[in-house]
Simulated scan of single mutants.
Amino acid sequence: MSVTLQVSMGELERLASRIGALGNLDTRPLMDEAGALLESQTRRRIDEEKTAPDGTPWEPWSESYAASRHHGQSLLNASGALLDSIAYAVGIGGDHVEWGSNLVYAAAHNFGLDMSLVGSRRRITIPAREYLGLSVENEEDLAALVDDFIDRQMEALQ
């Protein structure tokens, strides 16, 4: 009695061909999907979560500043301008995506600001309230998005 094992390289060659075809993919659609997800995650962080990507809660307003705010205003969302300015752009080559805000004061809120006004004894301090970046959950969402994209591409190659 004997057992025979026979290996056929045909299926491996077909798989290698499909994997090779993935190397030539137009990644613009993936970057567009990723940009939309990143924009959504950032807007949620500003509007609802009020935490840095690492989960650290943002520093609250000072008592005096809080007294000057109106009903419905919250950290980084007084007029809605910052929230509305969050956008993404896919790079020309389609191999990367950038997201953020083009508002002049956006970086001051994300990184913080501590400066003295010229010709004055006043000091302006804005604590960092990081809203750009990726949380662990955000990274997991992006990984799932990429996996889904690759699965769709592999199905299309069959």
Rank of each mutant, 00 (worst) to 15 (best):
L30R: 04
L82N: 08
I92W: 12
Q6T: 11
P57Y: 00
K50D: 10
R44Y: 11
I46Y: 00
H96C: 09
D54L: 03
L25S: 07
L12N: 08
P53N: 07
G72V: 13
E130F: 01
E130S: 04
M1L: 12
V90Q: 00
L30W: 01
M31Y: 04
P127G: 02
L117M: 10
E59Q: 14
T27P: 03
P127Q: 05
H96D: 12
G10M: 08
H70W: 11
A106C: 11
A144K: 08
A87I: 01
A87M: 05
Q73V: 02
L30G: 03
S120N: 09
I126T: 05
W58G: 03
S85H: 13
H70I: 12
D151E: 11
W61V: 10
N24Q: 14
H96N: 07
A128C: 09
E139L: 12
S2V: 08
T125Q: 14
A78H: 10
N138R: 04
E155I: 14
A36M: 06
D151N: 09
K50N: 13
S74M: 02
Y88F: 10
R152K: 09
G91E: 12
P57Q: 03
W99H: 07
I126N: 02
D148G: 12
I150M: 14
L82R: 08
Y65A: 12
Q153S: 03
Q41F: 07
Q73Y: 10
E59I: 03
M9P: 06
G55R: 06
T42D: 00
L15I: 13
A143C: 06
M1W: 05
L103F: 09
L38M: 13
T42S: 03
N24P: 08
P127N: 06
R129P: 00
G55A: 04
S85K: 15
E63A: 15
H70K: 15
V7Q: 15
S40H: 13
A78W: 10
R44I: 07
E63K: 11
G119E: 09
N138H: 11
E48W: 07
Y88V: 01
T42E: 00
S74R: 03
P53S: 05
A36H: 02
Y88L: 02
E49G: 03
